[in-house]
Amino acid sequence: MKWDIPLGEEIHPGNLGCQGCGGALAMRLALKALGPDTVAVIPACCWSIIDGAFPVHALKVPVFHTAFETAAVAASGIKAAKDVQGKATTVIAWAGDGGTFDIGIQALSGAAERNEDIIYACYDNEAYMNTGIQRSSSTPSGTWTTTTPDERPESRPKKNIMEIMAAHRIPYAATCTPAYPDDMLRKFRKAKSIKGTRFLHILSVCPPGWKMPSDRAIEVMRLAVQSRVFPLYEVEDGLAYTMSLWPTEPVPPEDYFRVQGRFRPLFEDPARLERIKAFVDQQWEILVRRHRRTHPDEAGIPAGEAAAR
């Protein structure tokens, strides 16, 4: 085995995720890092279904199903109860992008502001997938969903949830994706070791919602990172930015978009595609600048990036 990954599972086979579900894989990997002494709090989202319908459930750790908007607050309450019991159990709120960026943001902001001792993981498939692919504020600009059809694709850019969370000055926030399991496990282990509110933003493929074949599920998430559409980085105490991965060979964002039917509107309007690509570049440069401000010695910055300042 070339991967440094625990062989034990905290999930049974037989989950109800679709073929190639990035959310199912993300949970499986996250729990490998967090271990059995974990409680998961899941609001309405695909994962309410993936875990199985009562009385069956796929996770080996306890799951608390809760209302769409309440993941952060329910997790905070469970953690408080565990504290009272004198237990060190890790409590993780596990919510979709709808339950995080949109309806759950109030509870999340409140918990973060109080620096509740929870991990909040958002598996982001960039739409309301469980109810049939409606747009969320996480849906990227130019995307088809059932509520943003080809004639009127999503017009607003994806909400920057990482900046919102960083603005709360929580101890730890990081992006990750199951296409990079080493990086993802490292970040979950690190999150587990920190006290306070920790936020993990997981890019998570949805083959039916993204209109693509399930066998390319890992590849597409890898392309998101390599094309800089979804950079991997960490933010400590809301201010210290560290890039986790510098793509080595240039991959144009089109390579990421083309695999997915949901991005067809981008290829029907060259000006739109150019705008999106400029946006990707701009977001990347902002992150590089923040990384450089955090690491003035340029440690870890590849020569190519340093030159392209």
Partner: peptide, 23 residues
Amino acid sequence: QCGTCFVFCPDAAITWDDGPVFD
């Protein structure tokens, strides 16, 4: 025996015994 198949299975349907065992 690199283990890549085991790592990426979303369904925990592969167990590892010096190589993949499919369930």
